[in-house]
Design a protein around this nucleic acid. Structure first.
Lengths: 138, 138
DNA sequence: CTGCCACTTGAAGTCAGCTTTAGGTCAAGC
DNA sequence: GCTTGACCTAAAGCTGACTTCAAGTGGCAG
């Protein structure tokens, strides 16, 4: 028997409301109804995993829907490489921040403003060095 | 003469609407008015840099406002260390994603589903390995 | 056959961080 | 003195990814 929405929710760890939302967005499809109730093909689990993976990679649901658009998932290699580069920039930015935070957490200066390193970082922030590029998460 | 809002906007690269929003939130303060028009202390530039830095580090505006709450910026060392750890987790997660994307971008398999590495990553996604922890950006 | 309750729906609400809009004020230049 | 237009306000709107709500439906146990 094909799983119903609560079964999919339980097994995939995704709330039923989210599954309905994904269906409306065209990210997943139900195979039919049993009365009112949706029934899902077990393939939906793979779909959901792809969605979660895509999200983790920083793709929006709309972008993910595009990938699913043509039958079997078509994922453009250039698009993947571009997203990898986005991630790389984000990682570098976050790494710099993390190092700055670690320093500030251990800095012996009485106030952060008296620490030269902090002031240097602050100046970088003022000049926009840490502004996320478009396409970066957060 | 103290700068007015458009001067601050121009020099700090922050829209006037954002400055008003920050003022309402208590993140910055104007020193007075010239007619209706706000006047700002030049200190505001440092404030704005701190705000941008805090945002880049993943703090919410509310958290940043808390830090500003007691006269000179009080930034708790434990809080900084905790945020650094958050960032570290995020960085590791994103690095794994980036590597996965790079592989997929160059993978010779006709479909991603036929690549063992991709399938392995997909399984990890299904098991929630990439779900952002609470406190992580994006 | 009846009642329960898990499911259904569309619409509205949530969150953060802003931006936009509509209508108003007023310092400064002519 | 009059016009201009940059500034002001409160309130509403926006984005993305959902969640919540109120009201309805219907399969199945008893």
């Amino acid at each position: 028997m094909d799983p119903d929405i609560s079964e999919v929710a339980r097994r995939a760890g995704v709330p039923a409301s989210t599954l309905r939302y994904y269906e409306k967005k065209g990210l997943i499809a139900s195979t039919g109804r049993h009365g009112l109730r949706r029934q899902f093909d077990p393939d939906v689990y793979e779909r959901l995993a792809l969605i979660q993976l895509g999200q983790a990679a920083g793709f929006s649901l709309d972008e993910i829907a595009q990938m699913f658009a043509g039958g079997a998932p078509q994922i453009d290699h250039a698009q993947l490489a571009a997203k990898a580069d986005d991630l790389d920039r984000t990682i570098r930015r976050l790494s710099a921040m993390r190092d700055g935070l670690r320093h500030a957490a251990n800095c012996p200066a009485p106030s952060h403003m008296e620490c030269p390193k902090f002031r240097r970082i602050l100046k970088a922030a003022a000049s926009g060095a840490f502004r996320p590029r478009d396409g970066s998460p957060a």
